[in-house]
Design a protein around this nucleic acid. Structure first.
Length: 155
DNA sequence: CAGGTTTGCCGCCAAC
DNA sequence: GGGTTGGCGGCAAACC
């Protein structure tokens, strides 16, 4: 990074070294799996990044599976194997974390945050939020502020 | 991978 | 008036 003129030559070597060392660790087999074309890991990674970019919009598992050219069943199975979560759960967690961030750092109201992250009904949003974070949206953010998080200064 | 069954999420209404 | 909770039906998700 300090010497851009060397990056082209040395970069690939550094990457290779990192990969080799990684493959020698206990999680080596799992790392190797990523490069295995038929393992489906690459397709799952594709789906994951799509969800991360569009978590606020509604989507069906069938659509996602089709977009990476997999059957619904195997897509489920592979997705969970890689992320340890089901597709919809993954989307939900992203939504809830983003909503929490919006309320904490942007002083956004619960209702606005709710719609912003893709929930149509505030009641459902509040319910899911409480179940995941332990307490309802406004209670949770109030508690975090009391503990010194997000003292008003942005981000 | 396809298909059948169970689970649970989502959105609505109502109450607090 | 906004936020939270409870109950319920429909349907997709999750599981087998």
């Amino acid at each position: 990074m300090a010497r851009p003129e060397d990056a082209d030559l040395l970069g690939p070597l550094v990457v290779d070294e990192i990969l080799i060392r990684l493959l020698r660790t206990p999680i080596g087999p799992r790392v190797a799996q990523i490069g295995e074309p038929k393992s489906g890991v690459h397709q799952i990674a594709e789906a994951v990044s799509w969800i991360r970019a569009h978590f606020a919009q509604p989507v069906t598992v069938d659509e996602m599976a089709a977009s990476v050219r997999m059957g619904t069943s195997s897509f489920h199975e592979r997705f969970k194997a890689v992320t340890s979560m089901s597709p919809l759960q993954y989307q939900k967690v992203l939504r809830l974390h983003e909503a929490r961030r919006l309320m904490l750092f942007q002083q956004m109201e619960a209702g606005d945050a709710c719609h912003r992250v893709g929930y149509l009904s505030p009641s459902q949003f509040s319910r899911e939020y409480a179940r995941f974070f332990g307490s309802a949206p406004m209670k949770d953010t109030a508690r975090l502020r009391a503990e010194g998080f997000a003292t008003g200064a942005g981000r």
